[in-house]
Write a protein that binds this DNA or RNA. Structure first.
Length: 875
RNA sequence: GGAAGCAUAGCUCAGCUGGUUCAGAGCAUCUGCCUUACAAGCAGAGGGUCCGCGGUUCGAAUCCGUGUGCUUCCA
């Protein structure tokens, strides 16, 4: 078979993903093996794959694939969440394009469109995950508005309500006037904004014409002012106790109040108080019994209560009112001012603090066990630094606003009579039964259900239990087997939104934590360090990257640069590195495959014994290291380690050491061992780069479909020969040193040399002679005790190597320089070691093995110095 | 205003419990190679006051304090 020049990822990816799926490797059913379970953080159903997903899901896939090889029954559950605000916004936009206004639709009509939209576009992101190679159990795909899931959400709502943990109340909330819904604090993004600070004077209700000046960035809100507040210790305003002022333009008479809340330094030290439109003002209003005048409609236009500009947009009014204030002489001055302005995470509209009746969930009791679990490492966070953040939030937890003024989502199961009596019940019939108890004349068609939906996170917090069918039967076999799940992989930015709440619901409803470990990935940033986001448009097109470089290369690039919890700057050079790595392995395969037709039983393979033995030990050594790294989620370090093992140890050293000469036969043993070694390496790499490894695994021995790498059990690694590892390193050292000397003396690669070795370790050289000879292109290697005439001397450890070449003029100056430089370094090194060892406090305080190591360093350095001095003097 | 994180080669970053397996990787740079798997490659090389200062210690890139700079979270 003709093998292509490079790895052809496009065909390979399609073929293997389909094959793994068909073979059932992705699907899990409970059995006697231990389970290793991950529930995917459900992406937004409107989403398309971006770098954050690529990172997050590659991490999960690496964990799943490795666990599978280690004998776990792995289950990785895919799914999406309904993302009420984002989806509703998309559907509204889609309808608008069709010329349909949401206002003209009934709730049911709208939902019909929404479901159509979901069926059409909602699965895109899951399909894209297949391109990335994700080993997901597709039979378990869930959606947060599936019938049973919906029922679970309603059931939890009823339960919490009955426990007294859910209540209705008027509070200051974050209002998104574009989406016309409340937002939780976490959904508001504060952006630095260039604003203006307006100084406005209010006429005092005194006989003399006196004024008090306030500063505000939101002049349109003065129409809702119900007081002016100053600091009780502020001498400027002490005389105003008990006085009143008039709101400009509308001449509302409002009191001057005194409160220590005021920052005397800010503005004029006098604050206008608008309880309906500012949280702090609201609290002041409560304290001082101020009336609340709500001057805004839900769409951000002025309400009738404003009395002026009714129906006009708040920002247009801001401009107009400034003009009006100027004309009336109330505007004193304007100042440039930068402040933090809240924007909606989803619609980017400027948030209005607004008083509103909402549904709330009490968090204090739920938070307690969830906080303890993390603090006591019953649920372990990686990296642990996020425990602090978690503790801080959980310790100061506020009640959760769970209602959203949207249609797309789980409709709150609260029911009202025409005179606004309310009950909470699963169905209309139950609600009717309850409500009619106190009103016998009530008919069922008079009852109307709450319009609001629940926050999306109020459904996704049930994810780890509900994907296994908690609602239908909490004792079902799947839930018993897979819950608690093993590892949650997510971004730190949703630690409160989601992670904390899943822990709460897990304890509340399962009595158990939802997962053992939480691994927080970093945030993917672009080259300039900006977070990749849709709004910036700086996220590369992942599918294009996969197409260009291959899924393995994309996976490589995100994994190589993502130490746990640290942000990663995404750089295309890493994609190239990944692609090149695939090709390197592909070419190594071509080399080995090329030997197949030249396998012979008669060929000597003694020369290769050392190489094989050494490589096997290197793999074992690395296998042990990898185990430790995976335990700590040092995933990028693990990949680097595997990369080095394959590229350096295997390709650069091992293959060169065992490679037969041009068109020479290769022994059956070397061939077979090399393939076995290759297969072990492919297995170690497979979790990171599944496609290229599976492809080559099959090609190496011409395996049949079904005889696959993906489910192959991984051996337990342990090293039993430290000596050969040291000898391998020594051999590399000798080879590099001789090559360096060749280079420095301008030898061409083809120039042959004669190498003479003055050593105490003849056994080592005898075992590696053939390898050494080929690697340094030596015609002959012999032992000696004297430096041959006109030879280059090289010192490696305490061995002296002499290089002779015919027809080569040797530059002793270069050589002398090199030896002198080495000697100088070593003398300095020895001096530092001597100093340490002659320090009494070191000898008495340091651990014995450290002292022993220093002694060894001392004697090694002394020996080497001696050898170097001898070489120098013989020049 | 409160809190956290980061500062290591030209660039992007590793460096777990303090000790030469500790100063490392990739990219970039320099030298030599179209060597019979791979030029997306091979063989070598150069390059760093581990941000400044102070402390703990026999010993600090690593621990503590402090200053500076950047980032993020909360108010």
């Amino acid at each position: 078979m003709e093998l292509s020049k490079n790895f052809q990822h496009r065909e390979s990816e399609l073929q293997w993903y389909e094959h793994w799926n068909q073979a059932g490797y992705f699907h899990s059913v409970p059995d006697e093996r231990p389970a290793y379970t991950i529930v995917m953080p459900p992406p937004n159903v409107t989403g398309v794959l971006h770098m954050g997903h690529a990172l997050n899901n590659t991490v999960q896939d690496v964990l799943i694939r490795r666990a599978k090889m280690q004998g776990f029954n792995t289950c990785w559950v895919p799914g999406t969440d309904h993302a009420s605000i984002a989806t509703e916004a998309k559907v509204v936009a889609m309808l608008r394009e069709k010329g349909i206004d949401k206002k003209d639709l009934s709730r049911d009509e709208f939902l019909k469109y929404a479901w159509e939209w979901k069926e059409k576009y909602g699965g895109i992101i899951l399909q894209q995950l297949k391109k990335l190679g994700c080993a997901l159990d597709w039979d378990r795909t869930h959606f947060t508005m599936d019938k049973d899931y919906y029922a679970a959400v309603i059931r939890v709502f009823l339960d919490l309500y009955n426990k007294g943990l859910i209540y209705r109340g008027v509070k200051m909330i974050n209002w998104d006037p574009r989406a016309k819904t409340a937002l939780s604090d976490e959904e508001v993004i504060f952006k630095q904004t260039n604003s203006k600070l307006y100084y406005v004077q209010y006429r005092l209700d005194t006989e003399r014409e006196e004024y008090i000046t306030i500063a505000t960035v939101r002049p349109e809100t003065i129409l809702g002012d119900t007081a002016i507040c100053v600091h009780p210790n502020d001498p400027r305003y002490a005389h105003l106790k008990g006085k009143f002022a008039f709101v400009p333009l509308i001449n509302r008479r409002i009191p001057i109040i005194f409160d220590e809340y005021i920052d005397m330094e800010f503005g004029t030290g006098a604050l206008k108080v608008t309880p309906a439109h500012d949280l702090n003002d609201y609290n002041l209003g409560l304290k001082h019994n101020l009336p609340v005048i709500d001057t805004l409609n839900d769409d951000g236009t002025m309400s009738e209560a404003a009395t002026l500009y009714i129906g006009e947009d708040r920002f247009a009014v801001r401009k107009k009112i400034v003009v009006a204030l100027k004309e009336s002489g109330n505007l004193i001055k304007e100042e440039e001012y930068t402040n933090q302005v809240g924007h909606s995470e989803r619609t980017d509209a400027v948030i209005e603090p607004r008083l509103s009746m909402q549904w709330w969930c009490k968090m204090e009791d739920l938070a307690k066990p969830a906080l303890e679990a993390v603090m006591e490492d019953d649920i372990a966070f990686y990296p642990a630094k996020f425990k602090n953040l978690y503790r801080h939030w959980m310790g100061n937890i506020k009640d959760w606003c769970i209602s959203r003024q949207l249609w797309w989502g789980h409709r709150i199961p609260a029911w009202y009579t025409p005179d606004n009596k309310m009950t909470v019940a699963a169905t209309l019939e139950e609600a009717f039964a309850e409500l009619s108890k106190s009103d016998a004349s009530l008919t069922i068609d008079q009852i109307r259900q709450e319009d609001d939906c629940l926050d999306t996170w109020f459904s996704s917090w049930l994810w780890p239990m509900e994907v296994f069918g908690w609602n239908e039967n909490p004792n079902n076999a799947d839930l018993q087997y897979y819950y608690p799940t093993s590892t949650l992989v997510t971004a730190p930015e949703i630690i409160f939104f989601w992670v904390a709440r899943m822990i709460m619901s897990g304890y509340e409803y399962m009595g158990k934590k939802p997962f053992d470990k939480v691994y927080f990935t970093g945030i993917v940033r672009d080259k300039q360090g900006r977070k990749m986001s849709k709004s910036l448009g700086n996220s590369p097109d992942l599918l294009a990257l996969i197409d260009d470089f291959g899924a393995d290369a994309v996976r490589f690039s995100v994994m190589i640069s993502s130490p746990a919890g640290n942000d990663l700057l995404f750089d295309e050079s890493q994609l190239e590195q990944g692609r090149n790595f695939s090709n390197k392995i592909w070419n190594a395969m071509k080399l080995v495959k090329g030997w197949e037709e030249r396998v012979s039983d008669e060929t000597s393979d003694e020369y290769a014994q050392f190489a094989i033995h050494w490589m096997e030990q290197r793999i074992a050594e690395t296998g042990v290291e990898l185990e430790a790294m995976f335990k700590d989620f040092r995933l990028s370090e693990a990949l680097k380690t595997i990369y080095t093992l394959i590229w350096n140890d295997f390709c650069s050293w091992y293959l060169e050491w065992v490679k037969p000469g041009f068109e020479q036969p290769v022994s059956a043993k070397v061939f077979d061992k090399t393939i076995s070694i290759f297969e072990q390496l492919l297995q170690l790499l497979h979790p990171y780069m599944p496609f290229v490894t599976e492809e080559i695994y099959h090609l190496l021995r011409g395996r049949k479909m079904g005889d696959d790498l993906m489910p192959l059990a991984m051996p337990a690694y342990n090293t039993d020969n430290a000596t050969i590892l040291k000898q391998g390193a020594m051999l590399q050292d000798v080879i590099t040193s001789v090559r360096d000397a060749r280079n420095k003396n301008q030898f061409k690669p083809k120039d042959q040399i004669i190498l003479s070795v003055d050593t105490q370790h003849k056994d080592f050289y005898n075992a590696t002679l053939d390898i050494l000879q080929r690697q340094v292109n030596a015609e002959e290697i012999k032992f000696t005790s004297e430096q041959p005439a006109s030879s280059i001397a090289v010192v490696v450890n305490t061995d002296k190597l002499y290089i002779e070449a015919f027809g080569k003029v040797i530059d002793f100056g270069v050589q002398k320089e090199q030896l002198a430089k080495d000697l100088e370094y070593l003398k300095g090194f020895l001096a530092s070691v001597d100093k340490k060892l002659s320090n009494e406090r070191f000898v008495s305080n340091a651990k014995p093995e450290i002292i022993e190591a220093e002694r060894k360093k001392q004697s090694d350095a002394q020996a080497k110095i001696k050898v170097l001095e001898e070489s120098l003097s013989s020049l």
